[in-house]
Write a protein that binds this DNA or RNA. Sequence first.
DNA 1: ATAGGGTTAG
Length: 622
Amino acid sequence: MAPILCTPTSQLSSESNAAQTLHLLQRCSNMEELRQIHGQMLKTGLILDEIPASKLLAFCASPNSGSLAYARTVFDRIFRPNTFMWNTMIRGYSNSKEPEEALLLYHHMLYHSVPHNAYTFPFLLKACSSMSALEETQQIHAHIIKMGFGSEIYTTNSLLNVYSKSGDIKSARLLFDQVDQRDTVSWNSMIDGYTKCGEIEMAYEIFNHMPERNIISWTSMISGCVGAGKPKEALNLFHRMQTAGIKLDNVALVSTLQACADLGVLDQGKWIHAYIKKHEIEIDPILGCVLIDMYAKCGDLEEAIEVFRKMEEKGVSVWTAMISGYAIHGRGREALEWFMKMQTAGVEPNQMTFTGILTACSHAGLVHEAKLLFESMERIHGFKPSIEHYGCMVDLLGRAGLLKEAEELIENMPVKPNAAIWGALLNACHIHGNLELGKQIGKILIQVDPGHGGRYIHLASIHAAAGEWNQAARVRRQMKEQGVSKLPGCSVISVNGTAHEFLAGDESHPQIKEIDHMLEQIVERLREEGYKPKLGDLLLDLEDKEKETAIHHHSEKLAVTFGLISTKPGMTIRIVKNLRVCEDCHTVIKLISKVYAREILMRDRTRFHLFKDGNCTCGDYW
DNA sequence: ATAGGGTTAG
């Protein structure tokens, strides 16, 4: 028989067919196209070929445009999938809402004795990490050692990462010290682990000792500081990072903007926004969210709206950031309008949106509206109100003077009240002078939250307001015995880009003489307007004259006074205070806004106060 | 293939 000299036409065509299909798979951009290719592959039998089938699976299981469910149906029909295919499915589930499926697949994989390769464990451990599944991680760790992957750096790094993320920093450290190979990823995971469990000093130690730092090292430290309530250190690190010549990316900017928001430093926040524009960095949904939040928290709602307008993808978080922005400014009506606009735009509110809108109602005294919204949460939107939402309602009712209703709500709510709930009620007692109830709640709070200095101060000042000096002193003693200290009041004012910080009774400012002199003048001037210092609930057991001196040196008064002498007439004075503004300071600043014809914008612990013509936007309830 | 980011009551 004559030998076949050339490849049969049919085979040629099927080969070029396979090449073409592979090419199509490579360029495939959505599931619609993929379905067609899949159909083609079923017809030609190419689905039986490992490489095209793998490519098909990989596309469906990819997190962006794929469909994991589709991938699963394909996978389940493959006879003896290879390791790559198993890995692909495990990876798909590890990035999905059902990471536990990744573990189940792994069990099947073991059952079918499919061999592992170096890619299997990183994917699998990622699934563990998103579930914080410590026990499973320990079991997998044992497999890793048994199967000889214990020196694979991707695998050990993944282990480090799960232990860190799941809060088992001890195991992470043990492994970190054990392994014979470490890279930047290993060090970075340790930084993240230490910051996540609040050990910021240890994170610094790792950071300082690592041989090489990349942008992730820096960003982990910055976000760690933000999370630990050290936004100043975060900004400090940011500047060091720039000196080190690191190119910024979105994640680094997000963390830094949060620090700006926490500190209320508008200038620095603006600088970053300008940087984003200059370098044409894309404002993704998360970056947009924190930009809006930063502007809102730095007092510039107009600019927040601008950012919102320019964003292309307006998801629920972005709307929520806007609504929460209006909330802290006490602009409840507008918050409600935005809430409506959002739904008209077809965006469904989530739990956080409700926290935002209820807060907005609370700060603006919109009791009726809040009740309707609260009731609609479950009835219309299908959310069970969480403890945060109950907190908003207690705050709202209490602020509005409906103490009885607030108490009833606490009694009838399905969850156990926490410190925040009692705190809201105590605050209401304070505002409305319900000293008896206040004392009861104060006692509960000290038990629930014994390490929180503010609680003792609050209770002591209620006793003081009732003229019970002995009781007030007793509470303060108790606080001392517990080793709890009071967070000192601190107000910051930015003048020409420099932040000036004042503590209560602070003498350290270089212009303190001038400030003191001006302050005396102000008090004189305000007395003519009928101002009397309110000393009633001041804690200190002092003579009235001494009390006056103390109260006049509260940080917010020092900062406002400095603002008056160091900025041009007519300019808005912007101040950020770390605690709730004191009642006497609130009165004084209102009067200053009238007598000195200045707008004063002050952010305290919970909200903004805009003082203007002798009034404040908080309506005196804060 | 492994590491860093969101709005949140008091």
